[in-house]
Each structure stands twice: as C-alpha cells, then as structure tokens.
Design a binder for these strands. Sequence first.
DNA 1: ATTGTTTTTTGACCTAGATCAAAGAAAGAA
DNA 2: TTCTTTCTTTGATCTAGGTCAAAAAACAAT
Lengths: 220, 220
Amino acid sequence: MKKKEILKKSLLFNGLTNEQLNALCSISISKKYQRGQTIFHDGEPGNGFYMVASGKVKIFKLSIDGKEQILHIFGVGEPFGEVPVFHGTPFPASASTLAASELFFFPRLEFVDLLTANPSLALSMLAVLSMRLRRFTTQVENLTLKEVPGRLASYLLYLIEEQSREDVVVLDVPKGQLASLLGTTPETLSRIFAKMTDEGLIKVAGKTIHLLDLVGLRER
Amino acid sequence: MKKKEILKKSLLFNGLTNEQLNALCSISISKKYQRGQTIFHDGEPGNGFYMVASGKVKIFKLSIDGKEQILHIFGVGEPFGEVPVFHGTPFPASASTLAASELFFFPRLEFVDLLTANPSLALSMLAVLSMRLRRFTTQVENLTLKEVPGRLASYLLYLIEEQSREDVVVLDVPKGQLASLLGTTPETLSRIFAKMTDEGLIKVAGKTIHLLDLVGLRER
DNA sequence: ATTGTTTTTTGACCTAGATCAAAGAAAGAA
DNA sequence: TTCTTTCTTTGATCTAGGTCAAAAAACAAT
C-alpha cells in the first residue's frame, strides 16, 4: 500500500487535506525491521516519533533483573514514541517489534513546523495523547485494583470490542507477551486460563478463545 | 494573588504573551472548594479542564469494593482533567480536593478556539500531556516491577528533588494517602517505614523524614 | 484540659501469585 | 519428516503483602 494511503487511514492524520498529507509523506522516512528488533531503548534521546505502517510493536519497561512490563502494543496506523518530541526528554520506555514491521519515522523539527502551521493537526495529536492517557489510567486501575483474573477478563472483553466479534477472540500476541502486558507471569496466566475454562467462562484452543459467558466475565 | 499571575507562573501558560494571558483570564472561571470535596466523578462527561490556583487535588480510581488508587496529586499551577477536552470522552478518573482549594475552570470550546489560534499554546499543551504520559510510564513501572519498599524509596528521592532539600523531606499528604499513591495499604506502608528506620536508611518524625542513606535508598 | 475523631502503628493470620524445575506442545528450519 | 527452538502447561513450594482487629498517637473542637 502507498505511504499516503496508510497515513490517511490513521486516526492521527485522518482529517488532513491532500496537501498536508503530501507534506507528511515528504518529511517521513520509511524504515524496515525484522521481528524482535529493537527500535529504541529506554533513556535514549528521541529526535522524532514513529508510526506503524505494517507489523506490530511493543513498548515496554525492563526491571534490573530483566523482568518485562509491556505498556502498549501498537498496530498499523498507530503512532508511538511521541513523548520526547514534545517534552524534549529521553524515551521513557523501550520499543521493539513483535513481528516484521515497516515504520514511518517523523523527524521532530519538521513535524513541529507542520504542527505549528496546522492547528487541526495539533488537535489530533492532543486527542491521540489524551486517549493514551485514558488507557494508562485504566491500566493502572487494572494493575492495582483488580487481580489477575479480572485483568484477563477486561482484556478479553476489550478484544471482543476491538475485533468486533460476538463471542470468539483471537489473541494477536503470544501468551507469554500477554502475561507481561497484564503484569503477571506466563505460569500464572496459564493457570487462570485453565481455571476460567473449568468455570465454564471460556474455551481455549491455542490462540483462539471462545467466550462462553460474557456476563460472568464482566463480573470480574 | 491575581489570576493572571498564577496563570503566568504555570508551566502550561508560561510562554504566552500578555494578550493571550488576558484571553485566558477572561474565559476561565474561578471556583472554590473545601477540603475533601469532589470536583468530578469517574465517568462524568467533561466540558472543560481545571488548573489548581491554590490548595491540592488528587486524581484517583475506586474499585467496586471501595479501594482507592491515587493516580496523581496536583499542586498550584498544574492543570488536570484535560482528557475529555481533547478526546471527547468522559473523565477517566475522579478528582477531589486534599485541602481547601481554588480552581480555575477553562471551558472546552473557548479553550479550543484559543488553541487553534495559538500554535505555541498547543505545543505547551502537548508538552504537558507528554510529561503526564512519562509519569504514568514510571508509575506503571514502579507498580509492577518494584516492590513496595522500592516504590517508597523512589518517592522519597523524588520528593528530595521536588523540595530541593539535602536530606530531609516533608510529606505533603497524610501517610494513608501516600499508601494509596504507592498502590499499597497504610498498614504495609507503616511497616516499611519501620523497617527502613531499623535498617538505618531513614528517620521518621511525623511527616518529616530524614534520609540518612541516600545511596542505600537508591539501590532499591 | 477533655472529649471525640481521624490517622498511624502493631500483632496475628492468610491468600494470590511469584519462583523454580521440568515436562509437553507448537512452530520453523533443514 | 525430523530436528531445534520457542511456547505453554503443570506441579511443588515460598513469600510479599493484604486483611482483620485493636491499641496508640495525633488532631480538632468545644
């Protein structure tokens, strides 16, 4: 697909005029990554942000002893790594690809110029960051106020929305990565899948999960 | 202090011209709150955002069974409640005062008009939201990758920065609220204060805490 | 001061979930 | 297909920290 098409479809850029899109196309640089490659490290200075053109990217933090907490998983059309662009500080977390991916890179200075000239672009960007804040809010809520089965239930119900399915969802990440996103370990996650299956809430077949009792899940 | 003075001193509005400040003054509305009053509830629609003119405000989430997780504590000059302004969705959390406070309220439509006319204001706003995201990132990191003593150590070291003190910090919130901010209970927090005192890391006298071993604290 | 109220501390106990170890299953690669 | 490597599950054990209950301390208000 053409670069312009992808940009146009993204939430961030969808209200822009043809010219504005052309400008964005001309300042952005396409980069290709293999699965598992690092895009940037926590603490590095950032001189621009990225958007996923194809593939999938995870944003994560590592503890001293190597434990990983995934903060976000971004798919096609989603921008990431914007914090240093607007705040001037280093990346607050690391990013790497979960699959072979193509990314568009938007250099800071050029993008800020565009923003200054296009208030509507600035408003879209504010909307994107606001949504990001909202998601973090629920993530903190989940991590501290719910226990793991509750977090899993939330995530499954969220996937149902995302995939606009009735009662079946397909995990788009390995279960180990899902564990990290939910702030737990693969072992615990596996046990909770088993328990929920026992309780008749779900039925697991590899990455495909049948939600048998939506009401029961919502109660978590 | 005059409204304009307070706005001018805030990080969000500090680069603005006199006229822009006047415009902000004229669209904003001052509201007074007593200690412990609710400003808005999680899930309510928001048609504007706030800035603390005096006092202190907490942003928090409640679980079904009444447990509270504090997400932020904001002091003078800090804006809050911006998410609905830019994303159009309800407030993702609740807000209430920790002390008698005066707040400035900026109505959505008027503020967005100002933003559209002033790209530099939009950039400041982007910077504020970016910093907020950065803080959330470290909050999630702390909550999931560190245990409670580590979180407390981080917070104490952060306070040292904030208050630009050498080795003494004064808690600006009751210990119970601090526990909620750190994602734990008052009992546990109290025990950790006791343990750190035993280990010679700190000395606690009411709300005043002497940090006796900065290096030891950093190791957490 | 004195009483009522809120905050903080201490003690005893208990559970969610982490860790360690190892077996099974899937998924790519040759 | 067969071999490797990466995921996932299961079992056994351990512990940080939550919960409940109650005492002690700090604060406020009369």
